[in-house]
């Protein structure tokens, strides 16, 4: 309902914060419009394109299909949580640029977060398995090949003790 408000407390990119929000406010709009996390992109707002993907307690969710109040008490990570310093990118961000895994950039934050989730949780996937795991996020530019390359490359970087732990 319009106007119904609730107070929520959650952790966003490592920082805890509290806000009063309309109960019908989507998590995506909360992140974009209230917290200026513009890396959350809205491509369809009906849960198919996946551009609004964020990590909720380490697992990918579509923030356009959740209300902000549902994230109360949870930890959210957006692409801004990896790095916002273009001179000190996260290894996954580096891999995406090196492999030319982005063109227009609109699906990129979602793909990067999904990559982080895959590398953290799913071990050594084959290229075919990586494709399957990425298939919940649409990319209209790349034809996916370079995104798969970036996932493989990022995994190697992350397993390199020099860069691991970031």
């Amino acid at each position: 309902m319009a106007g119904d408000m609730r107070s929520i407390t959650l952790t966003i990119n490592g920082r805890q914060l509290s806000r009063d929000v309309e109960t019908r406010l989507t998590l995506a709009d909360f992140l974009r419009d209230h917290l200026d996390l513009t890396g959350v992109h809205l491509g369809c707002e009906h849960g198919v394109c996946g551009c609004c993907t964020v990590l909720l307690d380490g697992r990918s969710v579509r923030s356009c299909l959740m209300f902000a109040v549902q994230a109360d008490g949870h930890e959210i990570e957006t692409v801004e949580g990896l790095s916002t310093d273009i001179d000190k990118l996260h290894p996954i961000q580096e891999a995406f640029s090196e492999e030319h895994a982005l063109q227009c950039g609109f699906c990129t934050p979602a793909m990067i977060l999904r990559t982080k989730e895959l590398i953290t949780n799913d071990g050594e996937l084959s290229r075919e398995e990586i494709r399957e795991q990425l298939s919940g996020i649409l990319c209209r530019c790349t034809g996916y090949q370079n995104i798969v390359n970036a996932v493989v490359s990022a995994r190697e970087k992350m397993h390199d003790p020099q860069v691991a732990g970031r």
Binding site: T38, V40, L82, T84, D85, S97, L102, C104, G105
Partner: peptide, 15 residues
């Protein structure tokens, strides 16, 4: 590597 990339990688595409 593309010169456009960095801003898109950090969620500052300016769409």
């Amino acid at each position: 590597r593309r010169v456009e990339d960095p801003r898109y990688l950090v969620g500052r595409g300016g769409y």
